[in-house]
Amino acid sequence: MLLASSKFDELRLDHVTRSFGSVNALQDICLTIGKGEFIALLGPSGCGKSTALNCIAGLLAATGGSIWLDDKRIDQLKPEDRGFGMVFQSYALFPHMSVRANIGFGLKMRGTARAEIAKRVDEALALVRLEAHGHKLPGQLSGGQQQRVAIARAIVIEPPLVLMDEPLSNLDAKLRLEMRAEIRRIHNQLGATTIYVTHDQDEALSLADRIVVLRDGRIRQVGAPRDLYESPDHLDVAEFMGYRNRLTGKVTARDGDRVTVEVSSVRLAGTMRGDISVGAQAVIAARPDDVTAIDGSDNALKAIVETIEYRGREFVGTARTEGGLELIFHAPQAAAIGSTISLAVDPAHALAYAA
C-alpha cells in the first residue's frame, strides 16, 4: 500500500518574495501548512499562485525570504533534492512510453530496484483505478485518464508533498467534477499533504481544508472553505467568492454588526465586515442567488431586464437600475427583456464593506 512520506510536520513560507525585474509577483508571503492538509491557492490570473507553487517546488528561485520543512531550509535546494511530487496542467507525459513506464520513470531515475518499481507502479495504478491500462501509450487514453497517470507518477515516489498546478483546467465540465472527487479520495487515502493551485472557487471549496486567496502577489485571506464562502474579510475576496453584486450607498443606521445602507433611495441591510460609521459610504455585496425578483415592494430596487437565461430549475438574469447599477438576479419565472422588475437583496446573506 502506498503511503505518503511523513518526514515533516509543517511547511513554512517565511516572508517569501519573487520579483521579475520591477514586477513583484509575490510579496511577503507568510504561510504555514501542516502535515496532511489539503491547501488550495486561489485567485485570478496573475495573482501569484503558480509563482508561489513553483517557488515551493524549486522551479523558480525566491528573491527574498525562506522556505522551511520543519527546521530544514529548502529554498536553496535543487528541485530534485526536495523530492516533491508535481502534477502539471499539461500532464507532461512522455508520449512514446507506456503508462507503466511513465509512472515508474521517477523511481528509475532514483535507481530503485526493478522489482520495487514494478510493485509500486502496480500500487499507484490501483490507487488511480487504471490497472487495465498500464500497457497503453498516453495517446490512447482520455484526458481524464492521462491526468490520473500524471497523478500516479507524482505519488509513486512517495513524496512528502504533492503540488498540483491547475490540473483539471484542460478537462471538460463532467470530467472536472469526476476528477475532483478522485483527487480528494487519493489525498485522503494517502494521508498526503497537497497544495493545489486553481482559479475556480468551486474546486477550492470542494477540495480544500483551507483556502489561501491571493491578489497582486499578496495573501488576502486564509481560512476554511465555509469561512471564506460566508464571511470574506475584504470586498475583493468577496467578489472572487461569488459576491457579484456590489451596490454603493450611504450608511444610515448601525446596530451591532448590522448596517442599513441607502442605495438609490432604497434601504438595504447587511452584515458589516470591518468597521463602518453611520454617514460613511459602504458597499453591499450579494450573490446572484440572494437577489430575487419579487412582486411590487417599496423597499426593492427597480431595474430594467437586459438578459435572461434558463438554468434548469430557475432563471438567471441581468438588470440595470435607472442610475446605472447592474444587478445579477435569480427568478423562478422568465422576465421579459426590457421589462421593469423589483429586485430584493436578502439581508441575511448580504455583506457590507467600507467603500
Rank of each mutant, 00 (worst) to 15 (best):
R73F: 11
Q76C: 10
G65N: 09
T63D: 03
S66L: 07
K49I: 01
D71H: 15
C55N: 10
I67V: 06
S66I: 05
Q76K: 14
I56N: 01
T51Q: 05
T51S: 14
D75R: 04
P79R: 08
K49D: 04
I67S: 03
A57R: 00
A61S: 13
R82K: 04
T51I: 02
R82I: 06
A57G: 12
A52R: 03
L69D: 08
L77F: 12
G83F: 07
Q76Y: 13
A61I: 00
I74Q: 05
D81P: 01
P79H: 07
A62C: 13
I56V: 11
L59V: 01
L60C: 07
S50N: 07
E80D: 13
G83W: 07
I67M: 08
D70S: 11
S50A: 06
E80C: 06
R73V: 08
A52I: 02
S50T: 15
K72Q: 15
K78L: 12
D71N: 15
I74A: 04
L53P: 02
G58P: 05
T63S: 14
P79W: 09
K72V: 14
L77K: 11
P79C: 09
K49G: 06
A62M: 02
D70Y: 13
L53R: 03
L77Y: 12
S66Q: 15
D70C: 09
K72L: 11
A57Y: 01
L60F: 12
D70K: 10
L77I: 00
I74E: 06
S50L: 06
I67L: 02
P79S: 06
P79I: 06
Q76N: 15
A61E: 14
I67C: 02
S50Q: 05
K78I: 00
S50E: 07
D70M: 12
Q76R: 15
I74G: 08
T63L: 07
R73H: 09
C55R: 03
P79V: 07
L53A: 01
N54A: 09
A62R: 03
A52S: 13
D75M: 01
W68R: 05
T51R: 03
I56P: 02
G65K: 08
L77M: 14
N54G: 02
L59K: 03
I67P: 03
G58C: 01
I74K: 05
D71E: 15
S50P: 10
T51A: 00
T63N: 07
A61M: 07
G64H: 12
G83L: 05
L53G: 02
A52E: 08
S66K: 12
D71M: 09
L59Y: 12
L77A: 07
W68C: 09
E80W: 10
G65P: 02
T51K: 01
C55W: 05
T51P: 09
W68A: 03
A52H: 01
K72H: 14
E80R: 12
P79M: 10
L69I: 11
T51V: 09
G65V: 11
T63F: 06
S50I: 07
A62F: 03
L69S: 12
K78S: 12
N54I: 00
G58V: 00
L60K: 05
R73N: 08
Q76F: 08
L59H: 05
A61R: 13
L69N: 05
K72M: 13
G83M: 03
E80N: 14
D81H: 13
G83E: 07
R82F: 05
Q76D: 15
